[in-house]
């Protein structure tokens, strides 16, 4: 009898401690949520000098240089982006304004200096190429974690860092450009070290890598990232420099008016 009681108590203890351990481990959803915020919402605002290098499968290059600013209206919510092109010289002055909303189509405006003309652009979806690169608008402004289900596959080291490997499957297959995504998420910075996107056939379509991480004003920042089209061989490298956070950027900057007449610090 006594033995049965001890056995039962022992069993209960083992089962409950396993349950506690599991509760302490993070769910896939929670990891993705943290990663989403660390990647797309650090600081209230930020600005950076961006060099974007498009490399074709034949090895030819096209380089674009622009200043990019972002302002969050709400953490995990609406964001506004302002882009001002410096290079190549003949597109200098071209400017982009994007108001990104988590649950509906973005609003986009473009300024064409040669015509001194602002045009609103009706975006069709977030999976379009961002200024001709291998990144989509969604890659730039983020995809809400709630759109997919996330599952921790395993934990392993990636690039010398401890990482969770997450598998994400879209809840609504018509609402994504991938059928499956694998993410290697750094346990300390919560930034993705690598991502693999699989197309509808299940073939590897694109590979993202964060090649350089830096801590700037206390925020971990991907200062160099690459997106490679695994099928065509085309790839895009994006390098951030002069990154600054919490500059108290004026809301005015993210308006149609500044497209035509941006602040002097952008144009020099």
């Amino acid at each position: 009898m006594k033995r049965t009681i001890y056995f039962t108590i022992g069993l209960v203890m083992i089962v409950s401690s396993a349950a506690i351990a599991r509760a302490q481990a993070l769910s896939g959803e929670e990891i993705m949520r943290r990663s989403y915020l660390a990647r797309y919402y650090p600081g209230e605002d930020m600005s950076a000098h961006v060099i974007m290098r498009l490399v074709s499968e034949g090895g030819q290059e096209r380089v674009r240089e622009f200043i990019m600013s972002r302002r969050n209206l709400k953490e995990g919510g609406e964001q506004r982006y302002f882009l001002y092109f410096h290079r190549p010289p003949d597109v200098r002055g071209t400017a982009f304004l994007v108001w990104a909303y988590p649950r509906r189509d973005d609003d986009r405006w473009l300024y064409v200096p040669a015509l001194n003309l602002i045009r609103r652009i009706a975006a069709s979806d977030k999976y379009e190429s961002f200024v001709g690169s291998d990144f989509t608008y969604e890659d730039v402004a983020g995809r809400e974690p709630e759109e997919d289900t996330h599952r921790v596959l395993r934990e392993e080291k990636a690039g010398g860092r401890d990482a969770y490997i997450l598998e994400s499957i879209p809840k609504n297959p018509g609402n994504s450009d991938f059928s499956r995504k694998l993410s290697w998420i750094d346990k300390t910075t919560w930034l993705p070290l690598k991502e693999e996107y699989y197309d509808r056939r299940g073939d590897l379509a694109r590979v993202f890598t964060a090649d350089e991480l830096k801590e700037i004003q206390g925020f971990w920042t991907m200062t160099k990232r690459v997106m490679k089209n695994a099928q065509s061989g085309h790839w895009t490298e994006v390098i951030f420099s002069e990154v600054r956070y919490n500059r108290k950027l004026s809301p005015e900057l993210f308006s149609e008016r500044s497209l035509r007449a941006p602040p002097a610090e952008f144009t020099k």
Binding site: D90, V91, V112, P113, A114, V131, G132
Partner: peptide, 20 residues
């Protein structure tokens, strides 16, 4: 258009909106 800048800006617009 008459200027090379305009052409380059049109092409930037096109590649930013259509499939590259």
């Amino acid at each position: 258009p008459d200027s090379q800048e305009a052409v380059a800006q049109y092409l930037l617009l096109f590649s930013s909106t259509a499939r590259p």
